[in-house]
Design a protein around this nucleic acid. Structure first.
Length: 440
RNA sequence: CGGGGCGUAGUAUACCGGCAGUACACUUGCUUUGGGAGCAAGUAGACCGAGUUCAAUUCUCGGCGCCCCGACCA
């Protein structure tokens, strides 16, 4: 008797999309190796730790490849961002890195005098192209084809894409590179009031992203220079010694002002008092700003309202440096022993450490634990290497997976089903029954 | 882009105008196995080019690359 309905393993959306079904890994199969020392040409903490752990590889100044462990982290950050952007109505697309000169000339940004971070290249026929350092013009140009009525608005689209910026000086590891991954969302609204509502929503969703990445407590909503269409733009600044920006922070109000615009008038505008502020170094992990019709008018992006009247579309741009965010997490959450990943973006949830695997009883217990965790859909890195305990512990601390599960001869003495767990962040641990994890 | 520093093995470093040494990593064997193990053997190296010199990894010049400070960073 055949059945039309087969039993299949149910994988979560995240597993399929983020991990490509691959939830577990044996350390011995991982081609990357940990290192005791960082390369001497890396000074930034984020790059040092990420290179030592085998998360990334430096190709050249400001350009890094993402290796299996690093890619897992990056994918997870992207999933968080996608969830939060989708939650405020964002639709994901992906534009091209190669961009035409004529599009950039509309707003006057092709000129190297105006934009000094261009990477430009040429087609065989000598037509010049640029490698996108942002996508405002290109997206507006594209969307004019689809927006013509008030019924088409509001529209929120975003992409997660590699940007190219020919920085005069790359530094700070993956916090400031020449090639980096950025999420950029763009809002298209009928009116400023409609945009203001969205602006408030995206503020919340940005803080959700930073919260899920473990840095919300030190990330502050910051006022920065605005431009033609609004008095201020806003940044999300994470307090860190590695920061390149200086902000003035009112810790009670959880609001900061970028030094770029700091003066008495700004303070009174924002209702802040100088004596409440502290000066802090910070990393800009996100920025949001209202662009008005700066881009939509030059591309004649307009819509017909209910009365058939032609109106300009009001635009906004909202960025998160995805790779920069990853670097920032390492900067602010690591300790003297290595990285400390928050659980949502850790490359694995559990680091299963086998001590003395030559002992068949130990090996048997470890494999049973590994299998049970795998069957429950947990992500496990299983250190099956023939290495000393010290090496395995040191590597586990360096890699920063949130929970270590340790099984050795000592563990077997504790009884059936007992494993030792240790929290990477606090260092606290003890013996528990594996069922507590399996049924969590 | 201005100023400064540096390029020696996969990584970190030492010495030197005349055979380039050490540690980690790697390979093999044995021992070891709860916080970066031990012994033995082995593999592996002077950024590129020109010049000076009997001889250059070493000195000089140029190039390339990397790092730091500053400027820049919509």
């Amino acid at each position: 008797m055949t059945t039309l309905v087969k039993s299949v393993q149910r994988l979560t959306f995240e597993h399929k999309l983020v991990l490509g079904y691959d939830t577990t890994m044996r350390f011995s199969q991982l081609f990357t190796k940990t290192r005791h020392e960082a390369p001497k040409d890396e000074v930034s903490k984020n790059a040092q730790l990420l290179i030592r752990g085998g998360f990334i590889h430096k190709e050249m100044a400001g350009v890094y490849s993402y290796l299996p462990l690093g890619l897992r982290v990056l994918k997870k950050i992207k999933i968080i961002i996608r969830e939060e952007m989708n939650a405020v109505g964002g639709q994901e697309l992906i534009l091209t890195a190669l961009q035409e000169q004529k599009i950039w000339e509309k707003v006057g940004r092709w000129d190297d005098e105006k934009v000094d971070v261009w990477f430009k290249t040429k087609l065989k026929n000598n037509v010049e192209l640029g490698l996108g350092f942002t996508h405002d013009e290109q997206l507006v140009n594209l969307l004019t084809e689809y927006i013509s009525s008030y019924r088409d608005l509001p529209l929120y689209v975003y992409q997660i894409q590699t940007k190219f910026r020919n920085e005069l000086r790359a530094k700070s590891g993956i916090v400031r590179g020449r090639e980096f991954v950025m999420k950029d969302l763009y809002s298209f609204n009928r009116t400023e009031e409609e945009q203001d509502e969205f602006y408030e929503k995206i503020k919340v969703s940005y803080m959700n992203v930073f919260s899920r990445c473990g840095i919300a407590d030190r990330t502050y909503f910051t006022f920065s220079s605005g431009g033609t269409f609004s008095q201020y733009s806003n940044e999300f600044q994470t307090i860190s010694d590695a920061g390149e920006d200086i902000i003035y922070l009112d810790a009670n109000k959880r609001i900061a002002v970028n030094r770029e615009i700091m003066d008495d008038k700004v303070l009174s505008d924002l209702g802040l008092r100088k004596e409440d502020l502290t000066e802090e170094k910070a990393i800009e992990v996100g920025n949001i700003f209202k662009q008005g019709t700066k881009f939509t008018d030059p591309f004649s992006m307009s819509y017909k309202d209910e009365q058939g009247e032609k109106k300009s579309v009001v635009m906004g741009g909202y960025g998160i440096g995805v790779t920069r965010l990853m670097g920032t997490v390492v900067e602010v959450l690591s300790d003297e022993r290595g990285i400390v990943w928050p659980v949502e973006i850790a490359p694995f949830q559990y680091h299963l450490i086998e001590l003395g695997g030559a002992n068949p009883s130990v090996r048997e217990r470890v494999l049973a634990t590994y299998q049970a965790l795998t069957e429950q859909g947990f992500e496990v890195l299983y250190d099956d290497r023939d290495e000393s305990a010290g090496v395995k512990f040191a590597d586990a601390d360096l890699l920063g997976i949130p929970t270590q599960i340790i099984i050795g001869e000592k563990t077997l003495d504790e009884g059936d089903g007992i494993v030792e767990v240790k929290d990477r962040k606090s260092g606290e641990g003890g013996y528990i029954n594996i069922q507590e994890i399996l049924q969590s």
